[in-house]
């Protein structure tokens, strides 16, 4: 993970379901193909919602990382 540098970091901590997912989708729309978006979330819905959406939308989930008190999702825009 340490070698992946996000293009953009979205701090959605404190935002409730479906806030973090919505912020990620918005960021992906604005991003260029190949960009890496990292989302911080404290919402428990995100753990399933975000990976599901990323797969369905055809992007790449680089990783889901448990940080101290939140989860970080790292996503690469593929198309």
């Amino acid at each position: 993970m340490s070698d992946v540098k996000p293009t953009r970091v979205i701090d959605a901590r404190g935002s409730f379901c479906p806030g973090p997912l919505m912020e990620l989708i918005k960021a992906i729309k604005e991003a260029k193909v190949g960009d890496i978006i990292s989302v911080y979330s404290t919402d428990s819905g995100s753990k399933r919602d975000i990976p599901l959406w990323v797969e369905k939308a055809g992007h790449e989930l680089i990783g889901v990382f448990d940080r101290e008190g939140y989860t970080e999702f790292v996503v690469r825009k593929k198309r």
Binding site: C17, P18, L21, M22, I25, K26, D49, W53
Partner: peptide
Amino acid sequence: GVLASAAAAL
């Protein structure tokens, strides 16, 4: 509100 916004995001 929650379902509508999630659906719109999807």
